[in-house]
Simulated assay, not measured.
Amino acid sequence: MTEHIALFGAGGKMGCRITDRLKDTDRYDVQYVEPSEHRRERLAERGLSATSEEEALDGADIVVLAVPDDLIGSVSEEVVPQMDSGSMVVLLDPAAAYAGELHEREDISYFITHPAHPSIVDASSGLSGDDPDWFGGQGREEQDIVCALHQGPDDDYDRGEAFARDIYAPVRRAHKLTTEQMVILEPALVEMVLGSCLYAIREAYEHAVDMGVPEQAARDFLFGHFRVELGIVFGFTDFPFSDGAQEAIEQTRQDIFVSDWKERVFSEEQLDEVTSDIA
């Protein structure tokens, strides 16, 4: 059975990735909605043309909002009232749903899905190759995804996951979460914590170069230790840090992190504030 898809933001960054996955798939009849003339040119490069909002929504089974987070609320207010009863909205980020920015309508489903991206610890990952699939969903690097049925009948979870597996293919594992759990992962874990730590590492690397270490030596030494220390910290190997290294780590953690950083970063108040700013 062919499902009718209305893809909003089809010419954008995420929209083009989804377009590339769906345009040659017989399982879906896709209508592409893109108001930007510049982004319509991206569709034309793929041999596709944009259609009107009204035409795309007519009979749509699934409506994908591949638009910026801060537009999700306003776009849902415009689009959702025009949808057929029993249809589904697919969101690519949990922020707007968590922040309560979605149009309220009880007879449609809201499904959220997001890629985990190809894992740096997966032996099959080719991130060091000439053309790495950094984001996944290009048919080359297997990845995992997370999914949440924010609103709707339980059966719609399977329907949403099946669609998510197609737009992010090839998918290894699909993790069923709640909207709240997705927010703990992003933005909290991977943006607020991981992103901040990586910027700190980048600054430390640049500081080492400023202190006279040759840049290539600093890069090679740092990136090699990424692999070793990631394996140690996450238990992929039973080879431990030396006693001296462990002591240096514990002392430096006290200099870098305040003692209650986890309680602050993952608090409901902080998550509310951050998701509200995003949405």
Rank of each mutant, 00 (worst) to 15 (best):
R40N: 08
Y205D: 11
G139M: 03
S276R: 14
M14P: 04
A50E: 10
D70H: 15
A169P: 07
T179I: 08
D26Y: 07
D61V: 08
A204V: 08
I278S: 01
K262S: 12
T51Y: 07
T25C: 13
F257D: 07
R140P: 01
D155N: 12
L43W: 09
F111L: 03
S85R: 12
V33M: 02
D155P: 04
P132S: 03
L91M: 04
T19S: 06
H225M: 13
T275W: 02
A96D: 02
D220F: 12
I201M: 15
M83C: 05
V75Y: 09
L65K: 04
A188N: 02
S85W: 07
E180M: 01
P187N: 00
L102D: 07
A10E: 04
L185A: 13
Q138H: 11
E55F: 08
D243N: 14
V33F: 02
A204D: 09
F8T: 03
P115W: 01
E263T: 09
E45Y: 06
E41W: 11
G136E: 01
F226N: 09
D260H: 09
K23D: 00
A162I: 07
D255T: 13
D58N: 15
F163V: 04
D26N: 12
D131A: 11
D158R: 00
G212F: 02
A248P: 03
R42W: 14
G15A: 05
T113N: 03
P170S: 00
F111C: 01
P132L: 01
G100N: 02
A218P: 08
E273C: 09
Q138N: 12
G224R: 08
M182Y: 04
Y110V: 10
Y32R: 03
P240E: 11
M1T: 13
G139Q: 03
A204G: 14
T25L: 14
A164E: 03
R21F: 01
I5V: 13
F241W: 10
S52I: 06
G231S: 09
P81N: 02
C147W: 02
E141I: 00
G244Y: 15
P132T: 02
T51P: 06
A188S: 14
D158V: 07
A148W: 02
P214C: 04
I18F: 14
F257C: 12
V90H: 06
S276A: 14
D69G: 13
G129H: 01
E37T: 09
Y199H: 14
A174R: 03
Q216E: 15
E55G: 08
P94K: 01
K13H: 12
